[in-house]
Design a binder for these strands. Structure first.
Lengths: 114, 114
DNA sequence: CAGTATCCCATACGATACTG
DNA sequence: CAGTATCGTATGGGATACTG
């Protein structure tokens, strides 16, 4: 049994998946690999996610210490930038291999890019 | 937009996560890395999963071509063995790095093994 | 600009009993 | 032994409107 941030996991893979699992978290991390992005820049990279879900996933990733949120203005219009923490950067090899495997599948299997 | 097995994904990472995502699939794959396991052997490795859920996840992995199911007896008691396909074996590096990252977290961060 | 608030739904997952 | 069947629940995520 593994524990992290108050949650219990039955397997070491479960712990990792508890942090990067779900429909959108690896997509967010994938886009943050190359550097800092603002909220609306992330939205442009992933137009099919809703504002609510993106906001929730960013908050969860921040609570888990994977990304950091920096606010540059005190009054609207706000400027907020998201980037990987040092801890989050340790996930880059995993995220990249997950991305590469997806690309491999569409290139070598019956998958396709529309 | 990426497509595989009739499903659409907005990102190359989404495609991979669509196949190995969820609460149990990486746990199953992790235990199958070392070779073939029977249904009850898998259950012993993951005692907290229900029969129904394990059965559903195995079926999904089989449909996606990740694992193969071999039946050795025609009448009860049945003997069924699960193992990775060649396609599924291409996921081993990802599953291992997911497992390793979980171990790293409990060793170097506030996580713990109970 | 960068989010919340509110409401709703689909689906993943769990518990338990049963069967070829 | 290796599952299904049935039922119930939890939560992840969607749609849309609104706000500091």
């Amino acid at each position: 049994m593994y524990q992290f941030k108050g949650k219990e996991y039955p397997c070491c893979t479960s712990l990792t998946m508890g942090i990067i699992g779900g429909k959108w978290k690896t997509v967010i991390l994938f886009h943050l690999i190359d550097g800092t992005l603002r909220y609306n820049e992330l939205r442009k990279e992933m137009p099919s996610v809703t504002e609510r879900t993106l906001s929730l996933q960013l908050k969860t990733l921040e609570e888990d210490g994977i990304i950091k949120r920096k606010v540059y203005t005190s009054k609207p219009p706000l400027k907020v930038a998201y980037s990987l923490t040092d801890f989050g950067k340790t996930l880059i090899p995993i995220v990249k291999s997950i991305a590469d495997w997806g690309v491999m599948v569409v290139e070598e299997k019956e998958g396709m890019v529309v």
